[in-house]
């Protein structure tokens, strides 16, 4: 069998990342396809080299085919293209119980656009806790520069219980710039317990994003290393 076909199949299976036994069967099926396609193209009059090239091209890029051959919902799905789906999903788009991605959807979602029960990122919409630049939590707490939620905390805060520099709308709002209300509210933190609680909340918020970012980068790096180890040319 041509080296080009073997190499293509190696790359497909690298991206597919299946168990050895499953991988062998899938590979055999694809190999049969490519061999027969090559033979048919040769019978049509194409030289062998061109036939192999054409068969591979018609089959699709190794990355696209490989990723599409991954399990429907894996324990860990990390990919550099398309949508990752898994218990832990990491990719440009990620859907999972724990999802890290540019667009992330999950029970626990982290990304530029994050949607979930708990969501962290630039624009976040969450059921219970939303932390981000613009955060929305219709049934829970939203923390962000602009936040909307049952409880909203931020520069601009709207919602049931809102605390912020600007509180355009709230059932019970505290505007920290408006003098008495804000000062009275801040007096709650003058006790020792209150101060500890406030510091804990701020630290947790400040730590959460870098830690989550670190976890995501580490998982991604492992995937890059796995691919690079098998074929360094695949890493651009």
């Amino acid at each position: 069998m041509s080296r080009a076909l073997q190499k293509y199949l190696d790359q497909v299976m690298l991206y597919a990342n299946r168990k050895e036994e499953e991988s062998a069967k899938i590979r055999a099926e694809l190999e049969d396809h490519l061999r027969q396609k090559t033979a048919d193209l040769e019978a049509e009059g194409l030289p062998r080299e061109d036939a192999v090239f054409q068969a591979i091209e018609d089959h699709g890029t190794a990355r696209t085919v490989g990723y599409s051959l991954r399990k429907g919902f894996a324990l860990l799905d990390v990919r550099t293209e398309g949508t990752a789906r898994g218990f832990i999903a990491v990719g440009p788009r990620a859907v999972g119980i724990i999802a890290f991605g540019n667009v992330a959807v999950g029970l626990f979602a982290f990304g530029n656009f994050a949607f979930g029960v708990l969501a962290f990122g630039a624009l976040t919409i969450a059921g219970l806790l939303s932390v981000g630049g613009i955060s929305v939590a219709p049934f829970g707490a939203a923390v962000g520069l602009a936040s909307i939620g049952r409880a909203a905390f931020g520069m601009i805060a709207c919602g049931g219980l809102a605390l912020g520099l600007q509180v355009p709308w709230a059932i019970d709002g505290v505007n920290l710039l408006s003098g008495d209300n804000g000062i009275q509210f801040l007096q709650h933190f003058q006790t020792h317990e209150g101060t500890v609680a406030l510091i804990a909340i701020i630290l947790w918020l400040l730590l959460a994003v870098p830690v989550l970012n670190g976890v995501m980068c580490s998982i991604k790096r492992n995937e890059y290393l796995r691919i690079e180890k098998a074929d360094s040319k695949l890493i651009e």
């Binding site: 699709g60 696209t64 599409s68 051959l69």
Partner: peptide, 15 residues
């Protein structure tokens, strides 16, 4: 059809 993309569909149909 990207010919290679038919296999995930077939596998899914089998499942």
């Amino acid at each position: 059809l990207g010919e290679g993309t038919i296999y995930p569909v077939l596998h899914r149909m089998e499942e």
